[in-house]
Design a binder for these strands. Structure first.
Lengths: 194, 194
DNA sequence: AACGACTATATCAGTTCGATATATGCTGAA
DNA sequence: TTCAGCATATATCGAACTGATATAGTCGTT
């Protein structure tokens, strides 16, 4: 899904700055299943403004660029819903440098392999906490789309967050159950190659 | 990880054509945790050849471009191992159009939501079968890196495949356990908004 | 005091991808 | 029998995306 559509989605929950939209994707409600960087968010917002799908209000700031607060127009909201209804969603895409590296574990020092696996596990525990809708450390952007007026998480977001957490749990559990066997097998593999 | 490094990794198991390397990423051993397309594989192979990291032999073919079979040079193999040892692996990156769309489930017809969830589940069951090292339908490229000379899967690949399958299992299970609750909550949510 | 993170806007060089071009053979459905 | 889709091969390119950079202050930690 292109970044203009992602930005429209980000604004479905209310107004936001470009910086806030980026936060939604970096460690907010979209962080575990979409990616959008500043390098594409600002051009996308510019394009959406030109197309009449969003509008913005500017607030002067001292010593900083003026703050631009974007919101959807009626056309923008309709365009977004239409896009969700009509477009066939692309295949999921997953990239993992650690998993790629572990594919070649036999060529690596066992200490590095252990360190990579531990780093991988920590990252997924951290992500689990980030996803958790009940996480008290979470500072959801007020304009995030996932909560209704009473602050309750919406069913769709709850489902998606739950699924994200299930993936994280499974990852951490698999590592807990299988790391030592891997280390053992690697030692055997290496001694057989000597 | 850039596509040149991915190509070096792909050639760690032996010689391969550009087309075969693409297959390794599309539905072969790397398919569930890395992505590389023809648009970047061929330029990468050209660059690696210029840099002396790979070399190729050309076989004439009728009615087709001549087949180029690439293999690592000694420099190429060393460069690859050095890259794995020295580079800090980037954060995992996951993109899911379906999960993004489901975040806005409240705005969609319930039939579409159900269809998306079912599609998502089917994709992960399919991926599970694709990953399975014991899948008899799998036609691993002979030059894939994951097996030793006896055809046994290597420990690193086995671990990574197992983890991939655990993620798929968790996904399918979560959907099985939670889909009906989501549908019910959506119906409640929509009737409360009327 | 220094440094890193945060808050704001924006741009750009480099990288990547999906579509396209070329062209045949194979397979299955109509 | 015909046709469409897929497989097998090489390669290119326009469009999209990213990470670094620029600008510049504030805040908290070491």
């Amino acid at each position: 899904m292109d970044v203009r559509t992602l930005c429209l989605g980000a604004l479905m929950g209310g107004e936001a700055t470009g910086y806030e939209i980026r936060k939604m994707f970096e460690d907010g409600p979209f962080s575990h299943f979409q990616i959008a960087s500043l390098g594409s968010i600002y051009p996308a917002l510019t394009k959406l403004t030109q197309d009449g799908l969003v509008t913005f209000v500017e607030h002067e700031q001292e010593n900083r660029p003026d703050k631009k607060i974007y919101r959807l127009t009626s056309d923008g909201r309709q365009k977004f819903i239409r896009t969700l209804l009509q477009n066939r969603p692309a295949e999921d895409r997953y990239r993992s440098d650690i998993l790629f590296t572990l594919t070649f574990a036999e060529e690596l020092p066992i200490e590095l392999t252990e360190a990579l696996i531990d780093e991988f596990s920590v990252r997924y525990e951290t992500m689990n906490n980030l996803i958790d809708p009940n996480n008290p450390d979470k500072d959801d952007c007020a304009s995030g789309p996932g909560r209704d007026d009473d602050g309750n998480i919406k069913p769709g977001c709850k489902f998606v967050a739950g699924l994200g957490q299930a993936m994280c749990d499974a990852t951490v559990k698999f590592i807990k159950d299988n790391k030592q066997d891997l280390i053992k097998d690697l030692k055997t593999f290496k001694s057989n190659k000597s």
